[in-house]
Design a protein around this nucleic acid. Structure first.
Length: 600
RNA sequence: GGGGUGGUAGUUCAGUCUGGUUAGAACGCCGGCCUGUCACGUCGGAGGUCGCGGGUUCGAGUCCCGUCCACCCCGCCA
C-alpha cells in the first residue's frame, strides 16, 4: 500500500552522493531501479534525475525498513531515510559515480507502487520504437533519453544567452496564422466564428519576422514551433522547433558573424572547439563534387566528371554514354578500405535501384570499377580500351596506387545523385567518417527558382521573399533558372541544420518575383496583400536565418533520428502512439465549426 | 502515391525458405532458499487471438490474397 509523503523532505539527489557525505543522514526520493534480495540483506538501486545510488536495508539496522524493502518492486516510488556510509574496499562499485558510498536505510516509505514496466528502464535496450513511443513516459526514464532532453535544454539556454548578449529581442508570433499558397501543405484550424474559414499553423514565422523588421525591432529571434503537413522522415516531424532569427541592415556576413560564434558555443558544450570562419561552398560546386547540396565534409572522396574519358576509353559496355547527354562521374575508394567486389556491387545496387531508379531499369552497367594498378590498366588494354585514357581518368579522379575508381554512368541528374549517395554509403562502409568531428559548411549561391515540371511554372527554391543576387537581376527575364539567390544553408556533418537569405525589401522587386512565379496580382493581393502594403512603409534591408533545433540537438547527442531528442514525438504517419492523436471528434464539435467529415 | 525491412510470451528474438505431435530460448514476472550484492546466486512456476481478415489444404506461425501498424528511403518537405 502506498504511504504518505508526510513531512519528509528530500535532502539530496541520489546521483550526487559522494564520500564527502559519509556520516550524514539523508532523505532520498526516487524509483527502485533494481532490487537484490540476498535473504538477510536487501540492496535497492534508487534512481532519480541525477543518477543512481545503492540503498542497503539490513534487519539489524531497522527491521521495519528491511520488511518494507522486502515488498519493494521495480519502479516503485520510494522515500528513503538513512545514513551515508563508506563502502568497504571490496564492495566499491567503480561503474557508478556514487559507487564509493551507500545509504544505510533507517526508513523506507513506499510512496507509490508501480506495474511491472513493459520494458527495462535501461540504456542500450533494443525495444521497438513502437513500444517505446506508446509508453513514452517510461522511455523518458531511461538515462540516455534524460540526457538528450538535458542537452536540449542546455542548447536552448546557450542560444538564448548568445542571442540576448548580441542584443536580440525574443518576440512571439501567432500560432493561428494565415494560410499561404507557396511551400508545404498547411495544418489548418477551422474558425468557429467564421464558418468555412481557416487559420493555418505557421510553417515558419517568415512574414511576421520580416514585419518586425519593418517595425524597427532591428534584431529579432524566437524559438518557435513550426508545422508542416508533409510526409515524415528520420529528421522531419510534423511539428518541429526552429531557432528563428532576423536582422535589419544585414548582409550575408552579418548572419555568418552571428551564427558562427553561436555554433562555437554550442559544440563547446561538448568540449569541442571549431575554428572560424566556417568554410563556404557554392551550390554548383557542392552538386558537382559531392552530388548533394549538403556535403558531409568529415571525409574526402570528392566526385569528378570523367565523361570525356569514358566516352573515348573505347569500351562498348557503356552504351548509355553514347546516348544523348549521359555523364560519367567518378571517385576513388582508398586502397585501405578493402571492400569486397561483392559488397560493392550490393551497395551500388541498393543505391541505384532503391533510390535513384525505383522503376528498376538500372543494371550493373551503371557502375564501372577500375583498380589503380598497371595490371588493371593493361587488362583494359587487352579488351581494346585505351590505356592512356584509363590512366588519365585515374589521375583526374585523384586515384592513388591500389585505389579503386568507381565510375557511375547515367543521365546527369540521376548519376550526380547516385554518386553522391554512393560516396556517402562508401564513407560509412569504410568507416572513413570521424564520428567525433563537427564539420560546418555554408552553402551559398543557390538558384533563385527552379522549374516545376508538374505545374509548368517557376517556383522558389527557398521562398518567394528571397532576394536575387543583384548582378543576376537581368536573368530574371532572360534565363530565370540561372539567377542566383542571396540564400545560404548551414550544413553540419552532411545535415542541413539551417537556412536563410537576404530578403527583398523593395515592393517593386517583390512584385516582379511574384510575376515570375506566376502568382497573379490578384492572388498576391489576396495572400500577401498586408505584406506588400507593409513593404511600402519604410522597409529596411534585412535578412535572417532559421535553424532546425531538433536536428542540431540530435547531431550533438549523436542520435540518428530527431525523435530521440523530442519528448513526445510522432510516428512516420504523424500519429501519437501514446495519446492516439489524431482522433475523431463528436458531431457536436464539428457542428460548432460548421464542418462535416468525409470518412474514407 | 511508390520501394524496402519488420510484426511470434511483458520485452528481445528463434522457428516461416522446405506446412505435420504439446510453438521454443533469454531476460523480465510470481513463489521458495540465501547477510555484501551491484547482470546477485539458486530451486520451482506461471505466461501465447504467432498483427488482423479471408483463402488453399486432411492439417497453416509456415503457402496464397487482402489489410493494419512501426521503421528506412523516393516523391513531397518554399
Amino acid at each position: 500500500m502506498a504511504e504518505s509523503l508526510g513531512d519528509l523532505v528530500r535532502t539530496h539527489y541520489c546521483g550526487e552522493l559522494r564520500p564527502e557525505h559519509v556520516g550524514q543522514t539523508v532523505t532520498l526520493m526516487g524509483w527502485a531501479a533494481t532490487r537484490r534480495d540476498l535473504g538477510g540483506v536487501i540492496f535497492i538501486d534508487l534512481r532519480d534525475r541525477e543518477g543512481i545510488c545503492q540503498v542497503v536495508a539490513r534487519p539489524e539496522v531497522s527491521q521495519t525498513a528491511h520488511d518494507a524493502a522486502d515488498d519493494v518492486r521495480t519502479e516503485y516510488v520510494l522515500a528513503v531515510v538513512g545514513e551515508v556510509a563508506k563502502r568497504s574496499e571490496d564492495t566499491v562499485n567503480p561503474a557508478l559515480p556514487t559507487g564509493a558510498v551507500e545509504v544505510e536505510v533507517k526508513e523506507i516509505r513506499v510512496l507509490n507502487e508501480a506495474r511491472t514496466p513493459v520494458f527495462p528502464i535501461e540504456d542500450d535496450v533494443d525495444t521497438s520504437e513502437e513500444i517505446r513511443l506508446k509508453y513514452r513516459y517510461l522511455d523518458l526514464r531511461r538515462p540516455k533519453m534524460l540526457e538528450n532532453m538535458r542537452l536540449r535544454h542546455r542548447v536552448t539556454m546557450e542560444i538564448r544567452r548568445h542571442m540576448d548578449e548580441q542584443g536580440f529581442l525574443d518576440v512571439e508570433t501567432p500560432i493561428l496564422a494565415k494560410s499561404t499558397p507557396e511551400g508545404a501543405r498547411d495544418y489548418l484550424v477551422p474558425s468557429r466564428v467564421h464558418h468555412g474559414s481557416f487559420y493555418a499553423l505557421p510553417q515558419s514565422p517568415q512574414l511576421f519576422k520580416q514585419l518586425l523588421m519593418i517595425s524597427g525591432f532591428d534584431k529579432y529571434y524566437q524559438i518557435p514551433r513550426c508545422f508542416r503537413d508533409e510526409d515524415l522522415r528520420a529528421d522531419r516531424q510534423p511539428e518541429f522547433t526552429q531557432v528563428d532569427v532576423e536582422v535589419s541592415f544585414a548582409r550575408e556576413e552579418t548572419i555568418y558573424d552571428l551564427m558562427e560564434p553561436l555554433f562555437q558555443r554550442l559544440v563547446r558544450l561538448l568540449g569541442v572547439e571549431v575554428t572560424r570562419p566556417f568554410p563556404r561552398m557554392e551550390y554548383s560546386e557542392a552538386m558537382e563534387r559531392y552530388g548533394t547540396d549538403k556535403p558531409d565534409l568529415r571525409f574526402g572522396m570528392p566526385i569528378t566528371d570523367v565523361s570525356d574519358e569514358m566516352a573515348t576509353l573505347g569500351l562498348l559496355t557503356f552504351p548509355d554514354l553514347i546516348k544523348d547527354g549521359a555523364r560519367a562521374r567518378a571517385f576513388a575508394l582508398p586502397a585501405s578500405g578493402g571492400v569486397s567486389g561483392m559488397r560493392l556491387r550490393k551497395i551500388n545496387e541498393e543505391v541505384w535501384l532503391g533510390r535513384i531508379l525505383p522503376d528498376a531499369r538500372a543494371s550493373k552497367r551503371n557502375l564501372f570499377t577500375l583498380k589503380a594498378t598497371e595490371e588493371a590498366v593493361a587488362g583494359l588494354g587487352k579488351k581494346g580500351a585505351s590505356e592512356d585514357v584509363a590512366r588519365r581518368m585515374l589521375e583526374k579522379a585523384g586515384a592513388e596506387k591500389d585505389d579503386v575508381l568507381l565510375v557511375g554512368v547515367d543521365q546527369p541528374e540521376p548519376v550526380a545523385m547516385a554518386m553522391g549517395i554512393l560516396r556517402l554509403a562508401m564513407g560509412r562502409e569504410l568507416k572513413l567518417i570521424d564520428e567525433k568531428a563537427y564539420r560546418f559548411l555554408w552553402v551559398t549561391g543557390f538558384p533563385l527558382v527552379e522549374f516545376d515540371k508538374n505545374e509548368k511554372r517557376w517556383a522558389s527554391l527557398h521562398h518567394p521573399f528571397t532576394s536575387p543576387v543583384p548582378e543576376d537581376l537581368p536573368l530574371l527575364d532572360s534565363d530565370p533558372g540561372k539567377a542566383r539567390a542571396r540564400a545560404y544553408d548551414l550544413v553540419l556533418n552532411g545535415t542541413e541544420i539551417g537556412g536563410g537569405s537576404i530578403r527583398i525589401h523593395d515592393s517593386a522587386l517583390q512584385a516582379r518575383i511574384f510575376k515570375l512565379l506566376s502568382i497573379s496580382d490578384q492572388e498576391a493581393r489576396n495572400r500577401f496583400g498586408f505584406f506588400l502594403d507593409a513593404l511600402q512603409h519604410g522597409t529596411p534591408p534585412h535578412g535572417g536565418i532559421a535553424l532546425g533545433l531538433d536536428r542540431i540537438v540530435s547531431i550533438l547527442a549523436g542520435e540518428d533520428s530527431i525523435r530521440e531528442v523530442i519528448a513526445f514525438p510522432k510516428t512516420a504517419s504523424a500519429t501519437d502512439l501514446m495519446t492516439e492523436a489524431p482522433s475523431t471528434v463528436s458531431d457536436a464539435q464539428l457542428g460548432d465549426l460548421g464542418i462535416m467529415a468525409v470518412r474514407k
